[in-house]
Design a binder for these strands. Structure first.
Lengths: 141, 141
DNA sequence: ATCTTAACCCACTTTGTCCCACTTTTCATA
DNA sequence: TATGAAAAGTGGGACAAAGTGGGTTAAGAT
């Protein structure tokens, strides 16, 4: 179970240290891919979660499903974790997510997300306390 | 069942002693998360209560529900209780709740709340006797 | 052949974990 | 009610791990 947000830094070689708490969930290899949606970030899957993800995508019953499959597969990249616990993030993916030095690694249960720090802060601050409370009321919590 | 308010202190390493009366309800590990709402504090769940909480969140039927899910998941952090009964509160969560040395740990049935002491005192003193009585009348108690 | 890029290795700083110790409070028993 | 023992709350040192930076070599491209 991937949880929490971690403020890490990309070094000049494009390497990123994954949070130590994620090491158990990821094995030696992970899959990095482009996120869907407006807010562009990177998704990081363990091999088993990646399989579960691609299985789901393949079951899509819409006409442009092959485009969707292509989007995620061509954007995907296998990365091995080095002795320091880091992965290399290819240039094209760094460009996609607009990553520079300061990044946030966020755990979202089955996958991790890698964000440009400014983007992350902006995205999270959009979610006002009011909206959260509205959701909580709906849940009767 | 978590009850009562306890005035404890965060040490220089960011450790907090949980009230001994809560030890039974929490096991060896707890989940700390950001609260919802304007008054920012931290929530502490036992693992079983956390699962019940995430199950409910996933049932949300609002457009920005995935943002809400992400808010609570990325705001969450697993913490193990050390031999002295303390947990480490990560820097980002301490910042969120504005915690410094003096904190209040409050029991709220299924979860505990961790407050900056000044904030806690201010929040509780806002709640006048009149407001409480109005609520009681509504409940027909 | 040369230049760029990725993999590997080593080193440093900061942070977290573990352990022990001290003080205060609580509680049972004399 | 006095008193000793146990538990609760707090502090800090030592060590291990996490996070970061950089140099060197091997592989691939131009």
């Amino acid at each position: 179970m991937l949880l929490g947000e971690y403020y890490h830094s990309l070094d000049t070689k494009g390497r990123l240290n994954l949070p130590s708490k994620f090491r158990g969930d990821f094995g030696e290899t992970v899959i990095i891919t482009k996120s869907s949606g407006e807010k562009k970030c990177l998704w990081v899957f363990s091999l088993s979660e990646w399989e579960a993800f691609t299985d789901k995508i393949k079951q899509l019953k819409i006409s442009y499903s092959s485009d969707i499959v292509r989007y995620f597969l061509t954007g995907a990249n296998e990365a091995t974790i080095d002795k320091q616990g880091r992965i290399m993030i290819p240039q094209n993916l760094r460009d996609f997510a607009g990553l520079d030095k300061e990044v946030v690694v966020a755990g979202v249960l089955t996958k991790a997300e890698i964000w440009n720090k400014e983007k992350y802060v902006a995205a999270t601050s959009e979610l006002t306390g009011e909206k959260i409370e509205e959701a909580m009321r709906q849940l009767e919590l």
